[in-house]
């Protein structure tokens, strides 16, 4: 069984409260999405980010680059798969705009056993200055492709593109799964 964070409840109490959901978002939120990180959906979101979100083309380009890397991580690695039989991982994405930066967040369910590795990777990335980070990327890029792709260099690239520390939050769901959220700032 894949992760299923919805508890099984009688139908009436399980009814989705759209108002509550809608009210969660303040006016800073430009885009929010929860669902399969499937290529066609990603392409629509990506184009919107690239061509519409930024009055500032530099920031748009950066957000787009970060979006592609993080979205691919979710598509490939999320422990939650969608219920329509597609292989892509399920996750959430929020882009919020503040006076001097954009905050780009993604979240997805991960297996508890993978949490430590991800946290260590991100702590390492955050501990390096820009030159060390570039060096680390070059070293990682020269390693042979691992079987499951290259999440590692993707995260390094995200840190380089954003030029800010990666902010992560891990919430334990049960004895098997946790929710992993990452927020990346892009200065205007």
């Amino acid at each position: 069984m894949e992760a299923n964070h919805l508890e099984k409840k009688p139908l009436e109490t399980n009814k989705f409260d759209l108002f509550k959901y809608h009210s969660l978002f303040n006016q800073n939120v430009q885009i929010s999405y929860k669902g399969p990180f499937e290529s066609k959906v990603l392409s629509v979101l990506g184009n919107y980010i690239k061509f519409t979100i930024g009055k500032n083309p530099k920031a748009s380009k950066k957000i787009f680059n970060i979006f592609i890397e993080l979205a691919q991580n979710i598509a490939h690695y999320s422990a939650e798969k969608n219920l329509f039989g597609v292989e892509e991982g399920v996750g959430s994405l929020v882009i919020a705009e503040y006076s001097d930066y954009y905050a780009f967040s993604t979240g997805n369910i991960v297996k508890n056993e993978d949490v430590i590795v991800i946290i260590e990777k991100i702590e390492l990335i955050n501990s390096l200055d820009r030159e060390q980070l570039r060096e680390y990327k070059r070293v990682q890029r020269n390693l042979p492709q691992r079987e499951k792709g290259n999440a590692n260099i993707g995260l390094i690239q995200v840190a380089l593109t954003s030029a800010n520390p990666l902010d992560i939050e891990v919430t334990l769901i049960d004895d098997k799964y946790s929710f992993f959220a990452i927020t990346v700032k892009v200065d205007k």
């Binding site: 380009k61 787009f64 680059n65 592609i68 890397e69 691919q72 890029r141 492709q145 792709g149 290259n150 260099i153 993707g154 690239q157």
Partner: peptide, 9 residues
């Protein structure tokens, strides 16, 4: 003008 990290390899 743009390439993702997989392309960069």
């Amino acid at each position: 003008t743009y390439f993702n990290t997989s392309s960069s390899r």
